[in-house]
């Protein structure tokens, strides 16, 4: 136990002080305000992988690490769409995932915000439109409020995209 405490103490706080990255600073402050004002300080996100390669999922995990610590802005990932405010969708929507995506969307309460994350979700990316196995982009299947480009988008891009979505909402 002592070793665990020692290790925690040794590493210290690595969460980026809002000043160390200019972009992150502005974003973080705005995001916190948006989440506080519009969602009482708590924004529940449900992720659906509609056909991604798992690259976007790795970056979502990274957004939860101590450097970005997305939870400090009041955002957390939830296991059920029933109490999710925002649906984060990755990947081109495969024909085999289309129904599951629609059902998840239908299961959410309003305002049903949707963010399409990554080039695949936005324009089918490297897998391409005009592919028998792909039903379309996320926007072709459900209404989308914000898109985040990148293959995959970085954790900072992710935070920025969610902020854009909240501001438009």
């Amino acid at each position: 136990m002592l070793r665990i405490l020692h290790q925690i103490f040794k590493v210290g706080t690595i969460t980026e002080p809002l000043a160390s990255s200019e972009r992150f600073d502005v974003l973080g402050a705005q995001l916190k305000t948006a989440v506080r004002q519009r969602f009482q300080g708590s924004l529940a996100i449900r992720l659906v992988d509609a056909g991604s390669c798992n690259g976007c999922e790795l970056e979502i995990h990274a957004a939860n690490n101590a450097y970005y610590d997305i939870e400090r802005f009041g955002m957390h990932f939830t296991a059920s769409p029933r109490f999710a405010d925002l649906l984060l969708v990755t990947g081109p929507v495969s024909i085999n995932m289309k129904t599951a995506l629609e059902m998840t969307y239908d299961a959410m309460p309003s305002p049903k915000l949707v963010v399409a994350m990554g080039d695949c979700a936005v324009n089918c990316g490297v897998f391409g439109k005009g592919n028998y196995a792909i039903a379309g982009t996320v926007a072709d299947i459900i209404p989308v409020d914000a898109v985040i480009h990148g293959c995959p988008p970085s954790p900072t891009d992710l935070i920025q995209g969610i902020l854009a979505c909240l501001n438009d909402a």
Binding site: A50, G51, P92, N96, M97, N131, A133, I134
Partner: peptide, 11 residues
Amino acid sequence: LGYVHKGIERS
């Protein structure tokens, strides 16, 4: 499995 089939071989 097969839910995230994206037609990679054909593409």
